[in-house]
Simulated scan of single mutants.
Amino acid sequence: MLTIKQIRDDKEAAARKLAKKGVDAAPVIEKIINFDDQRKALQLELDNTLAAQNKAAKEIGALMGQGRREEAEERKRFVADLKEKSSRLEAELTDARQELQAAIVSLPNFPAEIVPEGKTAEDNLVVKLVENYTALPENPLPHWELARKYDIIDFDLGVKLTGAGFPVYKGKGARLQRALINFFLDCNTKAGYLEVEPPVMVNEASGFGTGQLPDKEGQMYHATADNFYLVPTAEVPVTNIYRDVILEKEDFPVKMTAYTPCFRREAGSYGKDVRGLNRLHQFDKVEIVQLSLPETSYEALDGMVAHVESIVKALGLPYRILRLCGGDMSFTSALTYDFEVYSEAQKRWLEVSSVSNFESFQANRLKLRYRDEEK
């Protein structure tokens, strides 16, 4: 979440930054400033009213002690009027705060300065390309045909049990899936990440904390009876471990890793580009999360990118790293690097990992703070 200070310090600069993400933020920024001005004015009027109320209440006791009952009764009526006014001001202040909050949380994070201009994935910048292609037979089979031929992934059975996008892994397919999960977790824990096993359902506060709500509620599976959401990524529960927490400066960096099944509705996804495993409603993912001090966050990001690259290298896959343009970035990200591997059978690059810096955006939403020697 952006802060009032970030917006008010230079509203034109704020609008320019968000325009890089394809957002026309100027009208919302004006609303935010107006709501903030209204909030400040109401707060000042309320403070003055309460001060006058307290002063008058003290005068009543003094007047009664002097036997000036008529004047005391007049002050009582005055205090009653002030109480009514303060109640009205408190209600108006609450409304102004809620409108201000709703406007602020509708704005995405500022993109970093080095984020490329652009609107779609075609505008992303390739920052590294490593080509070590495996020699395959002529006309290699795509994975969905291999899966059927060797009976290791059953897409039709998944449709029968649940629906499209919920495959069933069988035999060596299930073993491969389990082996990859263990391999990734082992790589992460060796690199100093603490393994945690979080719930795969979260409450609304957790979804808000990492920015999935209210921005992506249409992509999340919602258990309405309990108002829980199935996780779209382990990032959500893992990061929320530190919601409403005050850390000490010496606690940093905090490094965590987790495996969870992930659930995404992916509304509107169809066609050849989402065939087979290319885009699923349920999939397995191993996540790394790091909390860092503000001044070292980009150093931490570089370290995470290098770590993910070491894993892709260990798998011997052709890969490239892209710096996402403003229009292709997520709501919460300030800078994102995507890892893609090349599919010889599909003749295209496929995203397999994404590493982002959110700067203070999630920390503000989570009310995650730290204490140093000053404050």
Rank of each mutant, 00 (worst) to 15 (best):
A14G: 07
A15L: 03
D24Y: 08
A26I: 08
I33G: 08
L63H: 06
E71C: 07
E73N: 14
E74N: 13
V79E: 09
V79T: 10
A80D: 12
L82V: 02
E84Y: 00
T94F: 08
A121D: 12
N132V: 03
A135T: 13
L141E: 14
W144Q: 14
E145C: 07
K149N: 12
I152H: 13
G158A: 11
K160V: 14
P167T: 09
V168N: 11
K172I: 14
A174Q: 11
L176Y: 09
N182R: 15
F183Y: 11
T189Y: 06
V196P: 08
S206R: 01
A234D: 03
D244K: 13
D251S: 13
A258S: 12
T260D: 01
P261G: 13
P261S: 13
C262L: 05
K285R: 10
K285E: 15
S292H: 14
S292Y: 02
E295L: 02
E295T: 03
Y298R: 11
A300P: 07
H307R: 09
S310D: 04
V312P: 07
G316Q: 00
Y319P: 07
R323F: 02
M329Q: 13
S333G: 06
S333V: 04
T336N: 03
Y337D: 04
V352I: 15
E359L: 01
Q362C: 06
L366C: 12
L368I: 06
